[in-house]
Design a protein around this nucleic acid. Structure first.
Length: 714
DNA sequence: CATAGCCGCCTTTTT
DNA sequence: GGCGGCTATG
């Protein structure tokens, strides 16, 4: 490989890229080239004689993995010496994909059937519902979603049902431990794993089987982990086990960009790296190559408001650019129109749509944008959760495939048993389920033996027999490439005949295309591999960065991406920070990091907006500007909007707004020196003279001038 | 047993 | 506002 490939790296980047063996932590701010360091480090390792197949790189999303694989191969393409097979040999994937691989190979040691299905949130909810009912509890008090959240938190900390039972001290936790236990039982019966199980089972496998640990350590001599700040405890343990024999771990991350605490991400992983690996070399990347100083400085001021944080320097390398523009709009419709107008303007100035993105806090905010963009003929793509694989026809189709591969998957079986309608209704299913429970067999086997169930009429038995026959026939030819199998099953299952709308058909076609793409990249495609991969696929992975369309996505999805122009909308209390995160300061800090991540995606232009009114759940609400706006520390001029119609869209009728006074949200807890604790009843936004009405615990209600009241947030 | 329509539930972020 | 589950009706 030509030496000059590495020439464009900075000195500190080189230090990380050419680091020899042993633990290495790359602490780096946004836009400093972390991911680039990993890619080049893979190249440098191979260059120094390390076989590519002994390198394992972990990324946060499948999309990032795909990109890294591509970048690696183009790096090698650019070099004079070729490294054939490199692309296929280095393992680049997410933690979850790696775990599937490990479990498929070694899982049987723990009694795991390798044909397992991976359950998504909807499947999980069905099982959890059953678990709660089986524990004789009410799904109203123990809502399945809540229970799943609690169980997930336990799994992320690697707490199994048995050890949790030991530490469950009160009523709720005792019940939770029963539910957790039952839920895992059900999952085992169905031969299914949820997302968390993939990590948990792998971590325990590595913990309990030194031979597996050793084999994996030999297989992967180098482990590189990107976005280390967002790893959870289970992932941390897996990483530790893999490198236990050689300590060749390289992690990159930025504590200020940790935005997945709610999902179990443990920021301590990155903070304690030096304690975990005392001989670790730390490389800091402090230069930012992405954003203009006009964007970086406010981002820096914002994040400085986080108290639980090691401060670090962000050195801009770009020339001065345009200031951030903050705009106050009438309502969300006005806000969307404003974004559309701005985008039209940017395009006129020569920016291409693929370099523009709009970020928001919650998915539901995309709807108005979508409608507005259609009206204004602005091409866009929404990078959104699960969407595609959540469609009914897709789930039905996958249901058939799953049952064929894993007949124990009862959730899938129940889905397809009467889809399309074949005269097997609830009553019959109940009878068969009872039979299955009584004889301790799977539901699938119970259906196969339905002839033995007396309560079922002969006519229904015949229908069941037809169904079972259908499945056996479908199963006959499922070897080889997946796409033809999907197509055949679509026809023969009767789903095809049942389709009424054009769009549904298009979706199925897209599924077949996805299967064809899978066939193409797999050495030896199997239906099982396909299903296990499809379950890990999501929204962000479908995002096409090459397409000339504006990208719309949540702030969480924006991680790792960058654009010339960025819009962040909905800077309102309750939305950003989100109301569910306003209870404790740790949550607020995470919201602030989220905003920080959004801001630092912008290369040149950044537009931030808020609406004075917003319709939430059908109710028109007056909003309060987000506290984060003040924390940017900018004096913001409300500029004219492109399609100018002066309707008092700017605070204080337009001219000059200085974001210095704090805003209070309704219901917010505050403390006053003499009145003590109270809750905000109302906040009247009048700039410097804003009034806050507080109902104090003493029973009194007071209207206070914010600038004199000196309220603190407890 | 199938279907339609209604009611009540939840609604942050995602692998 | 959207979905899942339940009920009433054919």
């Amino acid at each position: 490989m030509d030496e000059h490939i590495f020439d464009k790296l900075t000195e500190s980047q080189k230090k990380a890229v050419f680091h020899k063996d042993g633990p290495l932590l790359v602490l780096a701010g946004p836009g400093s080239g972390k991911t680039r360091v990993i890619t080049y480090r893979i190249a440098a390792l191979v260059e120094s004689g390390v076989p590519a197949y002994s390198i394992c790189a972990i990324t946060f999303t499948n999309k990032a993995a795909e990109e890294m694989r591509n970048r690696c191969s183009s790096l090698f393409m650019a070099s004079r010496s070729s490294h054939p097979g490199f692309r296929n040999n280095a393992h680049v994937s997410t933690f979850h994909s790696l775990c599937v691989r490990i479990l498929r190979q070694y899982g049987e040691k723990t009694g795991l059937n390798p044909n397992f299905t991976i359950f998504d949130t909807a499947d999980q909810a069905k099982c959890m519902r059953q678990a709660v009912i089986d524990c004789q509890l009410d799904t109203a008090n123990f809502s399945p979603a809540r229970m799943l959240e609690a169980v997930s938190a336990l799994k992320n900390k690697l707490v199994d049902p048995e050890s949790f039972k030991q530490q469950a001290y009160d009523f709720f936790n005792t019940k939770l431990s029963e539910i957790y236990h039952r839920y895992q039982q059900i999952m085992t019966e169905f031969n299914a794993l949820d997302f968390d199980d993939l990590l948990v089972k792998t971590a325990f496998l590595l913990r309990d089987f030194p031979d597996v640990r050793e084999e994996l350590g030999n297989r992967f001599r180098y482990l590189l982990i990107d976005e280390y700040q967002d790893t959870n405890h289970a992932q941390y343990q897996i990483a530790r086990h893999i490198v236990s024999s050689h300590n060749n771990i390289c992690a990159t991350g930025d504590p200020d960009q940790s935005i997945y605490r709610w999902r179990g991400a443990d920021i301590r992983n990155i903070l304690a790296f030096e304690q975990d690996w005392p001989d670790a070399v730390i490389v800091k990347l402090e230069e930012n190559f992405r954003s203009t100083p006009n964007i970086l400085a406010p981002a820096d001021r914002l994040i400085a408001h986080n108290l639980h944080r090691k401060s670090k320097i962000l050195i801009p390398t770009k020339e001065r650019g345009n200031d951030i523009i903050i705009e106050t709009c009438e309502d969300e419709i006005d806000e969307a129109a404003n974004v559309a107008g701005r985008i039209t303007e940017l395009v006129k100035r020569g920016l291409s749509l693929r370099n523009i993105a709009v970020f928001y806090r919650i998915n539901s905010m995309s709807r108005i944008l979508e409608e507005t963009f259609i009206k204004n003929k602005i091409p866009y793509q929404i990078v959104r959760g699960v969407e595609f694989y959540n469609r009914k026809e897709i789930r039905d189709m996958l249901g058939y495939l799953k049952v064929l591969v894993n007949p124990a998957d009862q959730v899938a079986l129940l889905r397809i048993i009467n889809t399309p309608a074949r005269g097997i209704g609830k009553t019959t299913i109940d009878k068969v389920q009872n039979f299955a429970a009584k004889n301790r067999i799977t539901l699938y086997d119970a259906f196969r033996d339905a002839g033995k169930i007396d309560e079922i009429s002969a006519a229904t038995k015949a229908k069941i027999a037809v169904f079972i026959k259908l499945l056996e026939n479908l199963k006959k030819d499922i070897e080889g490439p997946v796409a033809p199998v999907v197509e055949r099953i679509f026809r023969e299952s009767g789903l095809a005949a049942d389709i009424k709308e054009e769009e549904t058909l298009d979706n199925i076609e897209e599924l077949v295309n996805a299967a064809a793409a899978f066939d193409k990249q797999a050495d030896k495609p199997t239906l099982l591999d396909y299903l296990q991969q499809v379950s890990l696929f999501s929204d962000a992975d479908v995002y096409d960065a090459e397409a000339d369309r504006v990208a719309l996505m949540t702030l969480h999805c924006a991680k790792g991406l960058e654009f010339d122009a960025v819009f962040i909308i909905g800077l309102e209390e309750g939305l950003l920070p989100h109301e569910r995160s306003t209870e404790n300061s740790d949550d607020i800090e995470e919201e602030r990091r989220l905003f920080f991540v959004g801001i630092t995606r912008a290369r040149e232009e950044l537009f931030i907006s808020l609406s004075q009114y917003r319709t939430i759940r059908g109710q028109l609400m007056r909003t309060i500007p987000s506290q984060f706006l003040y924390e940017l520390g900018i004096e913001s001029r409300c500029t004219e909007k492109p399609e100018e119609k002066n309707t008092g869209n700017c605070l204080d009728d337009g001219d000059y707004v200085k974001y210095t006074h704090p805003a209070f949200a309704d219901g917010q807890l505050v403390r006053h020196k003499s009145f003590g604790l109270g809750r905000v009843k109302e906040f009247i936004d009048m700039g410097e003279d804003s009034i806050v009405v507080v109902h104090f615990n003493t029973g009194q209600t007071k209207s206070l001038l914010v600038k004199y009241a000196n309220l603190s947030i407890p």
